[in-house]
Each structure stands twice: as structure tokens, then as C-alpha cells.
Amino acid sequence: MFHYDGSSCNGCDIEVLACLTPMYDIERFGVINTGNPKHSDILLITGFVNTQNAEVVKSLYRQMPDPKVVIAVGICAATGNFFRECYNALGGVNTVIPVDVYVPGCAARPEAIIDGVIRAAGMLEEKRNMLKDRK
């Protein structure tokens, strides 16, 4: 799993971090947070996309090996929230890259984030099989 903070307010970011701590401990499901896109299958994005980070998000997505899954955490990543009215915002994450799982909430709750990650892991499995079939 790889976490990138778009233009979020930190609310979702700290909840993502909270998922890594003993209380929620996402690692018990075999998910590890890495700092390197080439080591990860799941891209987790909080916050909306703006004119500055659109290229960054795209390049991170490109660098990840196939199969890959994208999770948009929080309402900002899903639609842009009320920030979509701002001049600097492009909108949700799906304006630049395809998103597989949307986690609702403002801020998204750790339980919801964990649920999203588990779902993403399931989809990863499906995508892997699809890739195999194509071969």
C-alpha cells in the first residue's frame, strides 16, 4: 500500500496513519505501508487533485506495477467536496486516474478505511486472475 496526500485537510491523513497504529493495526491483514510506489499494489489517495499535484498523482500511478488498485479516501478524494468550487481544484481523484474503491466520510473513519483496503485487496486478486486469463 502506498499513501499519497493530495490536497486534503489532514483529517483523512491522520486517520490513515491511525490505521497503522496498535488500535486499528491494518498490518494484521497483511497490508504494509511503503514509501515507494514501485513496491506497492494499492494506491491510497486522500484529498482532491489540484493543478499542482495532478502530474504527481499520474506519475505515481504509472510507476506502480500491474495489477494495481486505487482507493480514494474521504469525500474530497471522491468528489472534491465543497473545495471543487475553488479555483485551484480539479476535482476528485477520478479526474486524473481510474479509482476502484471509494471510502466515504469527512473525515473517513479508520474502520471505513480498513474496509476499503480489504475490498481493494479482493479486487487486486480479481485483477490478477484477469491478467492471467488474458495470457
Binding site: 493530495g6 490536497s7 484529498g47 489540484n50 499542482q52 465543497f82 475553488c86 479555483y87 485551484n88 481544484a89
Partner: peptide, 14 residues
């Protein structure tokens, strides 16, 4: 500028 939202300008809409 990476997280700049310009939310001060939202006063026009909210």
C-alpha cells in the same frame, strides 16, 4: 502550493 485550495475565496459561495 501543493495543498493550496484557495478556500479563503469560498466566501463568495458560502
Amino acid at each position: 502550493g501543493f495543498v493550496h485550495r484557495g478556500l479563503e475565496l469560498l466566501v463568495e459561495k458560502m
